[in-house]
Every structure is written in structure tokens, then in C-alpha cells.
């Protein structure tokens, strides 16, 4: 399963979405499944891309859809630890304007 979804632990409001391997249109449905059932307000989503090897523009689109969903529910989305190639794709698209991108160590205790 390329997408692992960890619901918030007790006392936390962070949903972790971990994507390993390819993050492209083939993961569209699975990716959506990870957040669409979380209807409670104020949930934040951490998209862990540390194991993502490849990402295409439809994946960028999926991130925007998650962002819209989170914002409607008063939550936010950040991207965690993208690898070099994936980070480059985020950079070219200047997605740091839309998402906070965190590296190892930061945000872990939130």
C-alpha cells in the first residue's frame, strides 16, 4: 500500500498521510480516502513525503484539494521532508506559497 494513513492519536489533532513510492494520479482515490472521512473541525494534516520517490502535477493538484478540504474544516496542511527530486517539483511550482514545508525534526511534537 503506497499510502499509509495514521489517524490522530489521543490528544492530538494531526492526521499523518505517508506516501511511499509514486505519488501520481494512480494514488488519487487512496489519497482522497485518507482525509475525506475526517469531518471533525480543526484537524491538521501532515503529508509525509519522506518516502515519496516521484511526484507529478496531478499530485500537486491533489495536495491543493486536501488544502481546500482542510481549510474548510479550519485545519491546515503541511508537507514533511520531501526528498530532493520531489522538493524540486514543489519548488518549481512555488508551492511553498501554499504549504509550509518542514524538514526532519521540526513539527514532530505538535
Amino acid at each position: 500500500m503506497p499510502i499509509v494513513h495514521i489517524p490522530p492519536e489521543k490528544g492530538s489533532s494531526i492526521v499523518v498521510i505517508n506516501i511511499s513510492g509514486k505519488f501520481d494520479f494512480s494514488t488519487h482515490k487512496d489519497f482522497r480516502e485518507t482525509y475525506i472521512h475526517h469531518t471533525q473541525k480543526g484537524l491538521d494534516f501532515k503529508v509525509d513525503l519522506s518516502e515519496t520517490e516521484y511526484m507529478d502535477s496531478s499530485a500537486l493538484g491533489m495536495l491543493l484539494m486536501l488544502r481546500e478540504y482542510a481549510e474548510e474544516n479550519e485545519g491546515k496542511v503541511w508537507i514533511h521532508e520531501p526528498q530532493k527530486d520531489v522538493h524540486k517539483i514543489l519548488q518549481i511550482a512555488n508551492f511553498d506559497r501554499f504549504f509550509e514545508i518542514t524538514q526532519c525534526g521540526s513539527k514532530e511534537n505538535e
Binding site: 502535477s57 496531478s58 500537486l60 493538484g61 491533489m62 491543493l64 484539494m65 481546500e68 518549481i92 511550482a93
Partner: peptide
């Protein structure tokens, strides 16, 4: 455009 679709 719907969310998730954009133009580079």
C-alpha cells in the same frame, strides 16, 4: 478550473 487543476 476545479480545485486541483491548474496551469503552469
Amino acid at each position: 478550473l476545479p480545485t486541483g487543476m491548474f496551469l503552469c
